[in-house]
Design a protein around this nucleic acid. Structure first.
Lengths: 343, 343
DNA sequence: AATTGTACCGGTAACGTTACCAGTACAATA
DNA sequence: TATTGTACTGGTAACGTTACCGGTACAATT
């Protein structure tokens, strides 16, 4: 790579000092209009592009934010990441991202790397296995926002969704369409989202006077295959149920896949509700009833919160709880809808 | 944000010069082992994290690469992007990315931004509307690799897939399973991928002695809805066909969605083949026959090529054509498989 | 005793940029 | 004429780091 044109090159060409060039190029006062015109012209001719890394050193601000998440190819996170990028671009920031693959040690490493790169702030969606790295950020006073997760033991800036409501809406919908034995394939409970969705599930049960039965609630690792195989197992065991509420849409696909294979009709025999509303859920057959999270917006809002922190518009530890919405599609509206339906 | 600990702070604490600190921290010779131990200890105690932006200025190398693509939330690109990140991480590089939303002016802007950030190299998946920015990169001698696109008018480093083969395999498969009137919903032909897939389509037609009929070939903008609505239109017009080869999997979903609505069975009445093999294609009903691109690998290889260019292991304008593979699933294997089948 | 070698350490410059201060030339005012 | 103001320009330092060079102290060799 050729060395790039610097203000020194322009200065030499124009026969002025580098200061004058800087003034011309940054619309600063104290410069002759004609000199300025000439310098700008020369800069254009030489193809000058300002080296912002030099500025970072000078000002201690890079205009780059770091994003740390488990998997940027996951349809949920890929949209969130896009939302962040959109927000960042609007404010003249760039985004550097690292995947953790749900590995806490990689997460910790990513935090260190981001700090080493002197990003102005970090958006992190932590695996909740441990949280020393979050405490490290607090301690070092690095601006950051936690995305998609709620810690109730530490007070930090967070953007997350109202998953108690989400769980509640999903289960209420199932109950109101006549379902009574509602299986819940949840994520691991050390995750705040799983905890909240379970709380919503219970809340709906209580509200409609149904007895909570923890035999119907399962915790599993994410992934289509896990949902698929636990569904198969459940069927084999002969556990009775008339519907399934899933931790996310991919679980729902796995569940429906398993049910179809056993000749069970969705939603006629079993209703299925997912969570997230990833883009494929509406194309799926049957199209998936799910709790929609506006992922782009979640990303944007996380960036906006970080930006507020960076500009010190706000010093408190902000929280933003985003609303969710039930999207009713085919996978949950079938035969049973009145009083006495059964499988 | 508190100011971070610098080698100067460590030097003061240890009572040595900054040079000695640098030596200690970078495993350089000419330092007493005991001094080194002490310095490292102090560095740890103070929580020192090296400022790599300073190094960038010093060496003109940032260890950051820029990635420019149309949409990081697109299931295809999100995997490619992940592949790039994996490759980069292995070599101690970080990734900064920008979306162009298929807008050429945003693409041009992204190139400028990346250069301003002094990224060591760029991986770009260009909208092929114009290519002045690519020429700009050549002219400025910025290391870069084009991903997923093949230019036949300029000689530049490229990583792309063998889409002639892909198109050929897909259509050959359809012909061999008894289909004769094969619709092709292609992307716009100014894109090299679309051109290549059409070439493969024609090649298969020729090989099996079928007459190419451009009434069966359509060019459309990407997106589920576009495929869905053109399919509806085609059905309304009464064009005869027994199968559809789609530019990508999302098209295939749209096509199948439209066919289902009209009560047409896939694959019994109409066989459908997609392209890309995005992760949902195997969960879809019917599971989708498609041409698989190993997207993670494509990303990794693009990074590796860029890295080779950066380390000057190779000066030539490299090309890497990645293999593709036909994945046969339910959407294409139905009734017609022998000789005389018809819709 | 003089020289050479070795082990260690520090001063300074440099990367590209802008802020700060200081300066010059000339015009306008007292 | 002397002073003040104005319009413009340049020199230098600084951001954090490492390379380069030069230095010192002591041991080993002649």
């Amino acid at each position: 790579m050729k060395k790039f044109v610097t203000i020194r090159d322009i200065a030499k060409e124009a026969g002025v000092s580098i200061n004058t060039v800087s003034r011309a190029l940054n619309d600063k006062p104290d410069i002759n209009i004609e000199t300025k015109r000439k310098i700008i012209e020369i800069a254009k001719k030489l193809g000058y592009i300002k080296d912002v890394t030099a500025l970072s050193l000078r000002y201690g601000l890079t205009k780059v934010i770091g994003v740390i998440l488990e998997d940027s190819s996951n349809p949920f996170f890929s949209e969130v990441l896009k939302g962040i990028e959109i927000g960042a671009k609007e404010r003249g920031f760039n985004v550097i991202f690292m995947n953790t693959e749900k590995d806490y040690s990689l997460e910790e490493e990513a935090v260190k790397t981001m700090i080493g790169r002197r990003v102005d702030g970090i958006i992190i969606s932590p695996t909740q296995e441990r949280s020393d790295d979050i405490k490290f950020l607090v301690e070092k006073d690095v601006p950051f926002v936690v995305l998609g997760v709620h810690f109730d033991d530490i007070d930090i800036p967070e953007v997350y969704t109202d998953d108690v409501k989400g769980g509640y809406l999903a289960v209420k919908h199932l109950i109101q369409t006549g379902r009574k034995k509602i299986l819940f394939l949840n994520g691991y409970l050390y995750k705040s989202v799983a905890k909240m969705r379970l709380e919503g599930y219970k809340k709906a049960f209580q509200e409609f006077g149904l007895k909570y039965d923890d035999e119907l609630v399962f915790e599993l690792e994410e992934g289509y295959e896990n949902a698929y195989s636990i569904m198969k197992e459940i069927l084999k065991k002969g556990i009775e149920f008339d519907s399934v509420f899933c931790f996310n849409d991919v679980f729902a696909f796995g569940v429906i896949g398993a049910l179809k294979e056993e000749g069970i009709n969705v939603p006629k025999d079993i209703a299925v509700v997912g969570y997230d509303d990833i883009s494929f859920s509406k194309f799926f057959t049957p199209s998936l009833t799910t709790v929609r999270i506006d992922k782009i917006s979640e990303g944007r809002q996380a960036f906006e919160m970080l930006h507020q922190i960076l500009t010190k518009k706000s010093r408190r530890n902000l929280k933003k709880v985003l609303d969710v919405e039930l999207v009713v599609r085919e996978s949950s509206v079938g035969e049973i809808t009145t009083d006495e339906g059964s499988v």
